[in-house]
Computed example of a mutant assay.
Amino acid sequence: MGKAKTSKRGGANSTPYERPAKSAAANNVFKFSKDFGQHILKNPGIAESIVAKAYLKPTDTVLEVGPGTGNLTVKILEQAKKVIAVEMDPRMAAETTKRVQGKPEQKRLEVLLGDVIKTTLPPFDVCISNTPYQISSPLVFKLLSLPNPPRTCVLMFQREFALRLTARPGDPLYCRLSVNAQFWARITHILKVGRNNFRPPPQVDSSVVRIEPKLGSERPNISFEEWDGMLRVCFNRRNKTLRASWLGNKEVLSMLERNYRLWCATNDIPVDDTVADEEEDDNEEMEVDENVPPSAGDEEEWGGIMDVDGVDDDTPSFFKEAMKTEVPKTKSKRKKTRVALLVREKVRKVLEDVTELADKRSGKCDENDFLRLLAAFNAEGIHFS
Protein backbone atom coordinates (compact mmCIF):
# COMPACT_ATOMS: atom_id res chain seq x y z
CA MET A 1 0.00 0.00 0.00
CA GLY A 2 1.36 3.42 -0.92
CA LYS A 3 2.00 6.06 1.71
CA ALA A 4 -0.54 8.78 2.24
CA LYS A 5 0.50 12.17 0.96
CA THR A 6 1.51 14.61 3.66
CA SER A 7 1.65 18.33 3.29
CA LYS A 8 4.99 20.03 3.47
CA ARG A 9 5.90 22.00 6.55
CA GLY A 10 4.63 25.55 6.22
CA GLY A 11 2.45 24.65 3.24
CA ALA A 12 -1.30 25.13 2.82
CA ASN A 13 -3.78 23.02 4.79
CA SER A 14 -4.53 19.68 3.06
CA THR A 15 -7.99 19.33 4.68
CA PRO A 16 -10.55 21.80 5.96
CA TYR A 17 -10.43 20.18 9.40
CA GLU A 18 -6.83 21.13 10.28
CA ARG A 19 -6.32 23.87 12.83
CA PRO A 20 -5.17 27.11 11.17
CA ALA A 21 -1.73 28.44 12.01
CA LYS A 22 -1.57 30.97 14.83
CA SER A 23 -0.26 34.42 14.08
CA ALA A 24 0.05 37.58 16.14
CA ALA A 25 -1.83 39.58 13.54
CA ALA A 26 -4.79 37.18 13.58
CA ASN A 27 -5.16 37.47 17.35
CA ASN A 28 -5.08 41.27 17.50
CA VAL A 29 -8.33 43.17 17.28
CA PHE A 30 -6.44 45.91 15.44
CA LYS A 31 -2.86 46.70 14.51
CA PHE A 32 -0.86 48.64 17.09
CA SER A 33 0.55 51.96 15.93
CA LYS A 34 4.29 52.56 16.24
CA ASP A 35 3.73 56.29 15.77
CA PHE A 36 1.93 56.42 19.12
CA GLY A 37 4.40 54.07 20.84
CA GLN A 38 1.68 51.55 21.66
CA HIS A 39 2.97 48.71 23.84
CA ILE A 40 0.13 47.29 25.94
CA LEU A 41 0.97 46.10 29.46
CA LYS A 42 -0.42 42.56 29.61
CA ASN A 43 0.91 41.42 33.00
CA PRO A 44 -1.83 42.06 35.63
CA GLY A 45 0.71 41.65 38.44
CA ILE A 46 2.77 44.58 37.17
CA ALA A 47 -0.37 46.69 36.78
CA GLU A 48 -1.37 45.96 40.40
CA SER A 49 2.13 46.85 41.64
CA ILE A 50 2.07 50.20 39.80
CA VAL A 51 -1.29 51.14 41.31
CA ALA A 52 -0.21 49.99 44.78
CA LYS A 53 2.93 52.18 44.65
CA ALA A 54 0.77 55.26 44.01
CA TYR A 55 -0.80 54.96 47.49
CA LEU A 56 -4.19 56.08 46.21
CA LYS A 57 -6.92 57.49 48.43
CA PRO A 58 -10.64 56.82 47.85
CA THR A 59 -11.09 60.55 47.15
CA ASP A 60 -8.33 60.81 44.52
CA THR A 61 -8.81 61.86 40.92
CA VAL A 62 -6.19 60.11 38.77
CA LEU A 63 -4.80 61.21 35.42
CA GLU A 64 -3.79 58.31 33.18
CA VAL A 65 -1.80 59.05 30.03
CA GLY A 66 -2.19 56.53 27.20
CA PRO A 67 -4.63 54.03 28.74
CA GLY A 68 -4.45 51.71 25.73
CA THR A 69 -6.97 48.92 26.09
CA GLY A 70 -7.67 49.80 29.73
CA ASN A 71 -5.70 47.11 31.57
CA LEU A 72 -4.26 49.67 33.99
CA THR A 73 -7.41 51.81 33.99
CA VAL A 74 -9.65 49.15 35.55
CA LYS A 75 -7.09 48.59 38.34
CA ILE A 76 -7.03 52.31 39.14
CA LEU A 77 -10.85 52.53 39.17
CA GLU A 78 -10.93 49.89 41.92
CA GLN A 79 -9.22 52.32 44.33
CA ALA A 80 -9.78 55.88 43.07
CA LYS A 81 -12.79 58.15 42.93
CA LYS A 82 -12.32 59.10 39.27
CA VAL A 83 -9.97 58.48 36.31
CA ILE A 84 -9.25 61.02 33.58
CA ALA A 85 -7.71 59.09 30.68
CA VAL A 86 -5.99 61.04 27.88
CA GLU A 87 -5.60 59.02 24.65
CA MET A 88 -4.39 59.96 21.16
CA ASP A 89 -5.78 56.95 19.29
CA PRO A 90 -9.61 56.91 18.90
CA ARG A 91 -9.55 53.10 18.64
CA MET A 92 -7.82 52.77 22.02
CA ALA A 93 -10.19 55.32 23.57
CA ALA A 94 -13.12 53.20 22.39
CA GLU A 95 -11.53 50.04 23.83
CA THR A 96 -11.03 51.68 27.23
CA THR A 97 -14.61 52.93 27.28
CA LYS A 98 -15.88 49.47 26.29
CA ARG A 99 -14.16 47.92 29.34
CA VAL A 100 -16.46 49.74 31.78
CA GLN A 101 -19.56 50.12 29.62
CA GLY A 102 -22.71 49.25 31.57
CA LYS A 103 -20.78 49.02 34.87
CA PRO A 104 -20.81 51.39 37.87
CA GLU A 105 -17.25 52.46 36.96
CA GLN A 106 -18.51 54.00 33.70
CA LYS A 107 -19.63 57.17 35.51
CA ARG A 108 -16.19 57.51 37.13
CA LEU A 109 -14.21 57.37 33.87
CA GLU A 110 -13.64 60.41 31.68
CA VAL A 111 -11.80 59.88 28.39
CA LEU A 112 -10.14 62.90 26.71
CA LEU A 113 -9.14 62.41 23.08
CA GLY A 114 -5.99 64.30 22.11
CA ASP A 115 -2.30 64.97 22.78
CA VAL A 116 -1.65 65.23 26.52
CA ILE A 117 1.23 67.66 25.94
CA LYS A 118 -1.08 70.13 24.15
CA THR A 119 -4.19 69.47 26.26
CA THR A 120 -5.27 71.76 29.09
CA LEU A 121 -5.60 69.30 31.95
CA PRO A 122 -8.35 69.49 34.58
CA PRO A 123 -7.33 69.29 38.28
CA PHE A 124 -6.13 65.87 39.47
CA ASP A 125 -4.34 64.42 42.49
CA VAL A 126 -2.19 61.60 41.10
CA CYS A 127 -0.79 60.70 37.69
CA ILE A 128 -0.28 57.06 36.65
CA SER A 129 0.98 56.21 33.19
CA ASN A 130 2.51 53.56 30.99
CA THR A 131 4.13 56.42 29.09
CA PRO A 132 4.76 56.34 25.33
CA TYR A 133 8.54 56.64 25.00
CA GLN A 134 8.51 59.63 22.63
CA ILE A 135 6.75 61.95 25.11
CA SER A 136 8.68 60.94 28.24
CA SER A 137 10.61 64.18 28.73
CA PRO A 138 7.81 66.61 27.71
CA LEU A 139 5.36 64.81 30.01
CA VAL A 140 7.67 64.97 33.02
CA PHE A 141 8.20 68.71 32.69
CA LYS A 142 4.56 69.42 31.88
CA LEU A 143 3.58 67.73 35.14
CA LEU A 144 6.28 69.54 37.14
CA SER A 145 5.41 72.94 35.65
CA LEU A 146 1.69 72.80 36.48
CA PRO A 147 0.50 75.61 38.80
CA ASN A 148 -0.88 72.92 41.12
CA PRO A 149 1.24 69.83 40.46
CA PRO A 150 -0.06 66.39 41.49
CA ARG A 151 0.77 64.89 44.86
CA THR A 152 2.66 62.02 43.22
CA CYS A 153 3.27 60.51 39.78
CA VAL A 154 3.97 56.83 39.12
CA LEU A 155 5.22 56.59 35.57
CA MET A 156 6.72 53.85 33.42
CA PHE A 157 9.55 54.86 31.07
CA GLN A 158 12.22 53.32 28.91
CA ARG A 159 14.80 52.01 31.39
CA GLU A 160 17.64 54.27 30.24
CA PHE A 161 15.42 57.34 30.56
CA ALA A 162 14.42 56.28 34.08
CA LEU A 163 18.07 55.81 35.05
CA ARG A 164 18.86 59.29 33.75
CA LEU A 165 16.07 60.72 35.89
CA THR A 166 17.61 59.18 39.03
CA ALA A 167 21.33 59.62 38.14
CA ARG A 168 23.56 61.49 40.58
CA PRO A 169 26.66 63.67 39.98
CA GLY A 170 29.52 61.54 38.67
CA ASP A 171 27.26 58.84 37.20
CA PRO A 172 27.76 58.14 33.46
CA LEU A 173 24.06 58.93 32.76
CA TYR A 174 24.03 62.20 34.77
CA CYS A 175 22.79 64.96 32.45
CA ARG A 176 20.66 68.10 32.17
CA LEU A 177 17.53 65.97 32.53
CA SER A 178 18.81 64.61 35.87
CA VAL A 179 19.51 68.06 37.31
CA ASN A 180 16.24 69.58 36.10
CA ALA A 181 13.99 66.76 37.31
CA GLN A 182 15.66 66.37 40.70
CA PHE A 183 15.63 70.14 41.26
CA TRP A 184 11.83 70.25 41.07
CA ALA A 185 10.91 66.83 42.50
CA ARG A 186 11.99 63.81 44.54
CA ILE A 187 12.44 60.82 42.24
CA THR A 188 12.60 57.17 43.27
CA HIS A 189 13.15 54.08 41.15
CA ILE A 190 10.44 51.53 41.99
CA LEU A 191 10.80 48.44 39.81
CA LYS A 192 12.19 47.12 36.55
CA VAL A 193 9.78 45.74 33.95
CA GLY A 194 11.00 43.30 31.29
CA ARG A 195 10.04 43.77 27.67
CA ASN A 196 8.07 40.49 27.58
CA ASN A 197 5.40 42.00 29.84
CA PHE A 198 4.12 44.03 26.87
CA ARG A 199 2.26 43.29 23.66
CA PRO A 200 3.95 43.78 21.26
CA PRO A 201 7.28 43.57 23.14
CA PRO A 202 9.42 46.71 22.79
CA GLN A 203 13.12 46.48 21.97
CA VAL A 204 14.20 47.69 25.42
CA ASP A 205 13.31 47.09 29.07
CA SER A 206 11.30 49.58 31.08
CA SER A 207 11.34 50.94 34.62
CA VAL A 208 8.72 52.46 36.91
CA VAL A 209 9.63 55.60 38.87
CA ARG A 210 7.78 57.64 41.48
CA ILE A 211 8.00 61.42 41.04
CA GLU A 212 6.90 63.56 43.99
CA PRO A 213 6.90 67.25 43.01
CA LYS A 214 8.18 69.68 45.62
CA LEU A 215 5.24 71.63 46.98
CA GLY A 216 4.76 74.76 49.06
CA SER A 217 7.91 76.13 50.67
CA GLU A 218 10.00 73.30 49.20
CA ARG A 219 9.24 74.40 45.63
CA PRO A 220 12.19 76.44 44.21
CA ASN A 221 11.36 80.09 43.65
CA ILE A 222 13.38 80.25 40.42
CA SER A 223 12.35 80.75 36.81
CA PHE A 224 12.51 77.40 35.01
CA GLU A 225 13.53 79.11 31.74
CA GLU A 226 16.40 80.87 33.54
CA TRP A 227 17.58 77.69 35.26
CA ASP A 228 17.28 75.47 32.19
CA GLY A 229 18.93 78.08 29.94
CA MET A 230 22.08 78.01 32.07
CA LEU A 231 22.09 74.20 32.25
CA ARG A 232 21.90 73.97 28.45
CA VAL A 233 25.25 75.74 28.21
CA CYS A 234 26.82 73.71 31.02
CA PHE A 235 25.78 70.34 29.57
CA ASN A 236 26.39 71.17 25.92
CA ARG A 237 29.78 69.50 26.45
CA ARG A 238 29.43 67.90 29.86
CA ASN A 239 32.92 66.36 29.97
CA LYS A 240 34.66 69.69 29.38
CA THR A 241 35.47 72.13 32.13
CA LEU A 242 33.06 74.98 32.73
CA ARG A 243 35.79 77.38 31.62
CA ALA A 244 35.90 75.73 28.19
CA SER A 245 32.11 75.49 27.95
CA TRP A 246 31.58 79.19 28.63
CA LEU A 247 34.75 81.02 27.57
CA GLY A 248 35.76 78.63 24.79
CA ASN A 249 32.57 78.94 22.77
CA LYS A 250 32.01 82.01 20.58
CA GLU A 251 28.29 81.25 20.14
CA VAL A 252 27.78 81.17 23.91
CA LEU A 253 29.59 84.47 24.39
CA SER A 254 27.54 86.06 21.59
CA MET A 255 24.33 84.83 23.21
CA LEU A 256 25.39 86.22 26.60
CA GLU A 257 26.25 89.55 25.01
CA ARG A 258 22.78 89.81 23.44
CA ASN A 259 21.13 88.92 26.74
CA TYR A 260 23.27 91.46 28.60
CA ARG A 261 22.38 94.21 26.11
CA LEU A 262 18.69 93.39 26.57
CA TRP A 263 19.00 93.49 30.36
CA CYS A 264 20.82 96.84 30.20
CA ALA A 265 18.16 98.28 27.88
CA THR A 266 15.40 97.08 30.22
CA ASN A 267 17.09 98.69 33.23
CA ASP A 268 18.19 101.92 31.44
CA ILE A 269 21.88 101.10 31.80
CA PRO A 270 24.12 102.53 29.02
CA VAL A 271 26.52 100.17 27.24
CA ASP A 272 29.83 101.04 25.61
CA ASP A 273 29.49 100.11 21.95
CA THR A 274 32.82 101.54 20.86
CA VAL A 275 35.30 99.26 19.14
CA ALA A 276 37.96 97.85 21.43
CA ASP A 277 41.62 98.62 20.85
CA GLU A 278 43.63 95.95 19.03
CA GLU A 279 45.78 95.38 22.12
CA GLU A 280 42.70 94.66 24.24
CA ASP A 281 41.24 92.41 21.53
CA ASP A 282 44.47 90.42 21.16
CA ASN A 283 44.63 89.78 24.90
CA GLU A 284 41.24 88.06 24.82
CA GLU A 285 42.09 84.54 23.63
CA MET A 286 39.70 81.62 23.49
CA GLU A 287 39.99 79.34 26.49
CA VAL A 288 40.88 75.77 25.54
CA ASP A 289 40.59 72.75 27.81
CA GLU A 290 43.85 70.95 27.06
CA ASN A 291 43.01 68.01 29.34
CA VAL A 292 40.10 66.89 27.15
CA PRO A 293 40.61 65.50 23.63
CA PRO A 294 38.50 67.10 20.87
CA SER A 295 36.10 64.15 20.83
CA ALA A 296 35.43 64.23 24.57
CA GLY A 297 32.27 65.94 25.64
CA ASP A 298 30.74 65.76 22.18
CA GLU A 299 28.00 63.45 23.39
CA GLU A 300 24.37 64.49 23.18
CA GLU A 301 21.99 64.13 26.08
CA TRP A 302 20.97 60.64 24.86
CA GLY A 303 24.35 59.63 23.45
CA GLY A 304 27.56 58.28 24.87
CA ILE A 305 31.32 58.26 24.47
CA MET A 306 33.32 55.29 23.26
CA ASP A 307 36.99 55.14 24.26
CA VAL A 308 39.28 52.98 22.13
CA ASP A 309 42.63 51.94 23.60
CA GLY A 310 45.52 50.00 22.15
CA VAL A 311 44.82 50.80 18.50
CA ASP A 312 47.90 50.89 16.27
CA ASP A 313 48.62 54.27 14.68
CA ASP A 314 49.14 53.76 10.94
CA THR A 315 49.46 57.48 10.14
CA PRO A 316 52.41 58.06 7.74
CA SER A 317 55.37 59.90 9.30
CA PHE A 318 55.34 62.70 6.71
CA PHE A 319 51.69 63.40 7.51
CA LYS A 320 52.46 63.57 11.23
CA GLU A 321 55.16 66.16 10.55
CA ALA A 322 52.70 68.20 8.51
CA MET A 323 50.20 68.11 11.34
CA LYS A 324 52.78 69.55 13.75
CA THR A 325 53.14 72.66 11.63
CA GLU A 326 51.14 75.44 13.21
CA VAL A 327 48.67 77.07 10.87
CA PRO A 328 48.19 80.77 11.62
CA LYS A 329 44.66 81.58 12.74
CA THR A 330 42.61 83.93 10.63
CA LYS A 331 41.48 86.91 12.65
CA SER A 332 37.79 87.68 12.67
CA LYS A 333 36.82 90.60 10.45
CA ARG A 334 34.24 91.68 13.02
CA LYS A 335 35.78 94.03 15.55
CA LYS A 336 34.97 93.36 19.16
CA THR A 337 33.19 96.05 21.10
CA ARG A 338 33.98 97.02 24.64
CA VAL A 339 30.66 95.57 25.82
CA ALA A 340 31.66 92.18 24.38
CA LEU A 341 34.92 92.29 26.32
CA LEU A 342 33.01 93.37 29.41
CA VAL A 343 30.68 90.36 29.17
CA ARG A 344 33.65 88.05 28.71
CA GLU A 345 35.31 89.50 31.80
CA LYS A 346 32.08 89.06 33.79
CA VAL A 347 31.92 85.39 32.81
CA ARG A 348 35.58 84.89 33.77
CA LYS A 349 34.95 86.60 37.11
CA VAL A 350 31.95 84.38 37.88
CA LEU A 351 33.76 81.15 37.01
CA GLU A 352 37.16 81.88 38.54
CA ASP A 353 36.74 84.43 41.32
CA VAL A 354 33.17 84.13 42.64
CA THR A 355 32.25 80.44 42.35
CA GLU A 356 35.72 78.94 41.69
CA LEU A 357 34.05 76.36 39.41
CA ALA A 358 36.10 77.11 36.28
CA ASP A 359 38.03 73.84 36.38
CA LYS A 360 35.10 71.66 37.37
CA ARG A 361 33.10 69.62 34.86
CA SER A 362 29.31 69.73 34.62
CA GLY A 363 29.04 65.96 35.08
CA LYS A 364 30.58 66.37 38.57
CA CYS A 365 28.61 69.44 39.70
CA ASP A 366 25.66 69.09 42.06
CA GLU A 367 22.53 71.18 42.55
CA ASN A 368 24.25 73.63 44.93
CA ASP A 369 27.05 74.28 42.42
CA PHE A 370 24.55 75.21 39.71
CA LEU A 371 22.57 77.40 42.13
CA ARG A 372 25.73 79.33 43.05
CA LEU A 373 26.58 79.69 39.38
CA LEU A 374 23.15 81.06 38.48
CA ALA A 375 23.15 83.51 41.41
CA ALA A 376 26.59 84.80 40.43
CA PHE A 377 25.60 85.28 36.78
CA ASN A 378 22.42 87.12 37.76
CA ALA A 379 24.39 89.39 40.11
CA GLU A 380 26.53 90.42 37.13
CA GLY A 381 23.46 91.19 35.02
CA ILE A 382 23.71 88.03 32.90
CA HIS A 383 20.41 86.21 32.39
CA PHE A 384 19.21 83.26 30.30
CA SER A 385 15.52 83.90 29.66
Rank of each mutant, 00 (worst) to 15 (best):
N196F: 08
N196C: 05
N196D: 14
N197R: 07
F198R: 02
F198I: 05
R199F: 14
P201Y: 04
P202W: 01
Q203K: 15
V204M: 04
D205G: 02
D205M: 03
S207Q: 10
V208N: 07
V209E: 01
V209A: 02
R210Y: 00
I211T: 06
I211F: 03
P213Q: 05
G216V: 01
G216Q: 01
S217M: 02
E218V: 00
R219S: 00
P220S: 00
N221H: 08
I222E: 01
E225G: 04
E226S: 09
W227M: 00
D228T: 05
G229R: 06
G229D: 08
G229W: 04
M230Y: 06
L231I: 01
L231W: 02
R232K: 15
R232E: 12
R232I: 02
C234R: 05
F235Y: 07
F235M: 04
F235A: 03
N236A: 12
R238T: 02
N239G: 08
K240P: 00
T241L: 06
T241V: 10
L242V: 04
A244P: 06
G248L: 03
N249I: 01
K250T: 13
K250L: 10
K250Y: 08
S254Q: 14
S254H: 09
L256W: 05
L256S: 03
L256Q: 08
E257I: 07
E257A: 11
E257T: 15
Y260I: 03
R261A: 14
R261F: 02
L262Q: 14
W263P: 00
W263F: 15
A265Q: 15
A265C: 02
A265N: 12
T266H: 12
T266K: 15
I269H: 06
V271I: 15
V271M: 08
D273Y: 10
D273S: 09
V275R: 08
V275W: 07
E278D: 14
E280Y: 06
D282Y: 09
D282T: 10
N283Y: 11
N283I: 07
E285F: 11
M286K: 14
E287L: 10
D289P: 02
N291S: 15
V292G: 01
P293T: 09
P294K: 10
P294N: 08
S295Y: 14
A296G: 13
A296Q: 11
G297K: 05
D298S: 13
E299F: 03
E300K: 12
W302R: 13
I305Q: 12
M306N: 07
M306W: 09
M306Q: 11
M306S: 10
D307H: 12
D309E: 13
G310H: 04
V311F: 04
D314W: 00
T315Q: 01
P316Q: 06
S317I: 11
S317F: 09
F318E: 10
F318M: 07
F319E: 14
F319T: 09
A322I: 07
K324M: 11
E326W: 11
E326S: 09
K329N: 07
K329R: 13
K329W: 06
T330C: 07
K331S: 08
S332N: 15
R334A: 13
K335M: 04
T337K: 15
